[in-house]
Every structure is written in C-alpha cells, then in structure tokens.
Write a protein that binds this DNA or RNA. Structure first.
Lengths: 349, 349
DNA sequence: GTGAAAGCGCTAACAT
DNA sequence: ATGTTAGCGCTTTCAC
C-alpha cells in the first residue's frame, strides 16, 4: 500500500494525501476526513525511507553505550548500574515523545566510527552517548560531528574546547563533587578517620571528579591520605577484589572505605567477609550509584544515588529540543545526587 | 557526500560505485581499489533511505519488550530478569551480525499496533517479541504479519494455529517443564512434603507451563496441593508480598515454597524475615530465572537458571536465517535450564 | 485548495 | 567490465 493508492481510493492526488499525513493547515476538514478514512481503513503507514529521502527526519534517536565490561559476561551492561535504568528511560521517554530508539553497544574506542557511520547513513537524527572515556577516537568523532548529540558523564570544558561553536550539543552529569563529599562527611560524622578509597577510572569524567573530590574533602577534614588505603579498582569487580586482597594481606586496614561504584563496594564486602573481616562491624563500606543490588545485598549498601532515570529523561529532552531547533550551542546540565544510608556503614568501632 | 561525487572523483560511474559498495563480483580489483580509496578518504557512507527505497533491506531488527511493570519504577525492565540480559544479548549478537537494533517497550496490549507500524513504515526487516501475554491484540497482529518474526516465551501450538502456513516465524522457549520439575524434585530430595507455590501469570506461556508442571510433579511424588499454600503473585513483587503476608497470618506455613520468578522469591524472603520467620531455617525458598540479584542477596537464592543470553542469541540467529531466506515456516526451539543450588533451600527442619 | 512534476540518493536491469 | 536509465515512495515547489 502506498500513498498513490490511497489517493486514488480517496479521489484526490498524492499531494493531498501527503498534506493530510503531515498535518498541513490548508486542507479543509472535509477533505482531510475523506482521506483519513481510507488511511485508517487500510492501516496505511507511509514508507519511512521515502519520507526521509524526500527531506523528512528519521524520528530516530541513536543510543551508544560504551561498555568497559568483559564481552563474555552476559550481565556486563546490566550489571553496570548506569546502563540498565538509563537505557530503559531513554527508550521510554523517547517512545513517548514519538521517537524510535536505536541502541548500540561499543566495547572499544576503535569502534567509535559506528557513531559516525550511523549518522552518515542517515539512520538517526540525533544521538546520546554514555560511558565514554576520554580518548583520541571519541574526540575526533565529536569534533567533526555536525548532528545534535547529548553526552552523559563528560567534561563540559573539554567539549567546549573541541566542538565547533555552533555545534548542537548537550552535556549531562550528576553532581559528583557533592556526592563524594557527602560520602566523606558521612564517614567522618560516624567517627572514622582512617578512610580508604577504591578508585574508578581517571579516563572517565565521573571517575576523575570523584577522586579529586575525595582528596579535597579528606584534606578539608584534616585527614591524611594513606597510600596503603588507596586501591585501584577501575570500576571493575575483579580488580577491586584483587586490590582488597592485597590490602588485607598488608595487615593494616582502615576502619572505612569508599568505593567509586556499588559493584566494587560489593566485591570489597565479599572479599572482607571471606577473610573473616566483618562488614560493617570491623570495617564500613560505602558504595556509589545506588544500583539495584545495593538494597538487596546484606548488609545493604550505603551509597550515593545517581538519578539515572532523570538524567536519561533530561538527555532525551535536551536532544529533542536541539532537533526541534529550540536549542543550539553547548548546554550543560548537572543533576543532584543523594546519600542513601543503609547498613554497611556504622560508627567507628 | 553522495555516491555520484565519489564516482566523479574516482573517474567511474555511480553504478560502479554501487557495485563496489555491494561487493559485486564483476568489478576488477584495480577498479575496486580505486573507488575504495576515494570512499575511505571521504568516509563515505551510503544513505540508508536511498538504499532501502531502491530495494535493499534496512539491516535493522526490531526488539519489542512487553513490560508488565509499573511505568513509574525506573528499574521495571531491568528488575525484570528477562529483559536486561536479553536486550543486551540481542544488541550484541545483532550488531555482531551487522544489524542495527531498534528497541521498543510496550506496556499495554493496546500498544501492539506499534509492531505493525514499525514494519509497515519499513523501519525494520524482522522483529523479536518477548514477554507477550496471550490476548486478542497480539493474536491479530501476528495473524496478519507478513515479515519474519521471533517470539520468545509463547505457545508454539497457538502460533501454528493462527499463523498462515508460509509465515516466517520462530518460537523460542526454555524448558519450563524440566525447570519446575527439578525445583520440586530438589525440595522433595531435601525432605520437604509441605511445599507452597507462588504463581506467575497464566496468560504468559511460561507462567502457565510452570504452574501445570508444578501440579503434575507434586502428584508424581504423591504430595498434596494445599490451597492455603497456593499464592497468586502474578510475577510481581508487591503482589507476592501481599500474598505471603496473608499466608503468614493464616498461621499455617509450608516448610518450603517455590516462586515462579526470583523477584517474587525475594519478596517472599524479605516478608518472612520481617515477620521473624527465618529463611532457610524455618522455610526454604526456591526462585526461578537466576537473575543477577539471586546470587547477591543473603541468603543467596536457589533457583533455576534460564539461559537468557543463549535464547537471545538463538533469536537473532533464527531471525537472521529467515531474513536470508535460509528458513521458512514455523520453527520451535527449546533451550535447556539448570537448577542452581544456593543457600535459600536446606533440609526440612 | 488542489494537482502536476521535479527530485531526494541509491540499485538493478539493460545496453554496450 | 562499465555506463545509461528507469524507478523506489514520498515531499514540496510551482501552477492554477
């Protein structure tokens, strides 16, 4: 079924059918209804490719998830507390606003060209990128991209530096400084002074900001940074586990630790428990993200809640604004976070 | 940049560029290289809409997730153990095979038309549907659909009945009979005789099959079905919680319960614990799915592992086979499941 | 207010 | 082996 047949059946021309489909104002109600009747009767839907080729948008958004996880692990993206709820929200809000959503996973900076390809093939009108690490590949893609794009978790200053002035781009972050400060403050309030830290990744904006915020907040409270208590976890379970084992072997433990995500916090809890070190009695553990597991594990995990759903919502809205030309240039949104007190952090023993 | 410009720069005609892009055999290596050089230099990507309009496929798969969850809950799909890993795997395997993946969430049978629309607009070549309940809407969509489709968790007999004989369709299930039988067998082996059951949804194929399998296996072991131990959970946390509360209030508890998914099992565990009933010391709890939370909660959850990743993989492969015309008619695949013994089920007290 | 006709960028049948 | 040409189904100027 094509518009020409609809036209014939309704006794009008293709142009009129097109006008009806696109809600042109200069079609009298009577004609419109006559055409709509035929359209409904035959469940006619215009061919998207033809519309796009003739100049319309695709009404499709591209979502690009950068995964740092092992390709073999079936839960790698959904274990990742970011992606699950975020993806869901993008699809939700996107569909609600009338967009189709195309999803890609990118496992490696060398696959960044997929972003450019998807745009070049005119498959999408705009894109959302999340989980990107800072590297040459993504930077060169961004610098040359001339389509609306939303980047989640990225340094807005760097974007400003590499993007052309008139690029339609939005950056969305959560308040990592406040989040990490509230972690330190909470542990300090509980009487802890020997506080350990499990780093994320420096190449990630949030990983970097959380690390810096931790250092500054510790100094603010006049607390020392003990190199032995500083673990490199890279946001990954196995790395955190290995680092915690080394810490335990050293025989010198802090009374509390902050992990840069829930997954590492969980790995730390399990490792401590397996070595007969009780959580939270012997050591308090603070997570970050408030992923679904945080409330389910025992002891439940004190953590910082990132408003993933709201961030995704904001992302789609920002993209939609840029697509409808309501917005140009660089915009930056920072969403608020919240400390969630649960069982894994208690008063210093 | 369009193929005509590439042609001019390479000193050939558009047809030759097209032949190179589509890997036609009758292009000599020398010409191919000459054209490819220009294509690479300009990062040329052919316009998808034009290709589709000219008769090529979209190389896009549609994934339709039917969610029974509350639209307000940000984790509703990812809390759903099915969707997270499944979605991930479809994107993964799909991308790997060179397909783009478009994802939709459907919250209501009345939104089923979105499936037909996406096909009618020629946005996708084939579709995968998961989580569908049996109802008029989906049946009429299926009956009229003339594109390759994969349905996960659906009654193959019904499909056979409503679909035209030559329809390209595949049904993928996991072995729910075996899964539920192994649950009952395990509890019986642990000495339990008073075994309760938290139902899923009858309108769901897996929900129905698990229920029937439970009844039959109890009879097989000569065990009674106590109406008081039979709870309606509808696969949903809150319903399971309410039903368990009622059970507790009755004062008559079984020594073990089987829930039709992990989420309800978790809700049951929490509810029992909150009422001072110990799991597993006072009552054993068996889940179903082996979602990410199952191994993380304490006590960890004994459950049946559904091979989500493999099912998704199979789904994409089956779809791909149908798209490449290697397969026609109805195919049915049933994947194997595995009982996972953890801490929530122990010998009868 | 409505129709005729050009054109979007590509593929494929045909011609050479 | 390569170029020419006719569409694919729609939108959109331009006439009337």
């Amino acid at each position: 079924m094509k518009s020409e047949e609809i036209a014939k059946l309704a006794g009008v021309s293709r142009s009129t059918v097109s006008r009806v489909i696109n809600n042109y104002s200069n079609v009298p109600e009577k004609t419109r209804e006559k055409v709509m009747k035929v359209i409904r009767e035959y469940n006619f839907e215009p061919n998207t490719s033809a519309r796009v080729l003739a100049g319309k948008g695709t009404d499709t958004l591209g979502l690009f998830l950068f995964s740092i996880y092992d390709k073999k692990n079936p839960y790698r993206v959904y274990g990742n507390s970011y992606f699950g709820p975020f993806l869901e929200a993008v699809i939700d809000v996107g569909n609600y606003k009338g967009y189709y959503v195309m999803v890609h996973t990118i496992y490696n900076p060398s696959e960044c060209w997929r972003i450019r390809q998807t745009f070049s093939q005119r498959r999408i009108d705009g894109g959302i990128v999340i989980g990107t690490e800072r590297n040459q590949e993504i930077q060169s893609i961004l610098a040359e991209l001339n389509h609306p794009l939303v980047i989640v978790d990225y340094d807005p200053e760097e974007i400003k530096a590499i993007m052309p002035k008139d690029a339609k781009i939005a950056v969305i972050n959560s308040n990592d400084v406040k989040g990490m400060e509230s972690c330190v403050d909470e542990l300090v309030a509980l009487g802890h002074t020997r506080i350990g830290f499990i780093e994320g990744r420096d190449s990630t904006y949030s990983g970097y900001v959380r690390k810096e915020a931790f250092k500054r907040r510790m100094a603010y409270h006049g607390l020392p940074l003990n190199a032995n208590y500083w673990l490199k976890g890279e946001f990954v379970k196995t790395k955190a586990e290995a680092a915690v084992k080394k810490l335990i072997k050293s025989g010198d433990l802090p009374t509390a630790m902050i992990a840069c995500n829930d997954e590492m916090a969980l790995a730390a809890m399990d490792t401590f428990k397996n070595h007969g070190i009780r959580v939270p009695e012997d050591i308090s553990i603070m997570g970050y993200d408030d992923s679904p597991i945080a409330s389910v594990t025992r002891p439940s995990l004190s953590t910082v809640r990132i408003p993933f759903y709201n961030m995704a919502q904001k992302a789609v809205e920002a993209l939609s604004d840029m697509l409808e030309k309501k917005a140009t240039g660089l915009r930056h949104y920072q969403l608020d976070v919240e400390l969630i007190q649960r069982e894994s952090c208690i008063k210093r023993p």
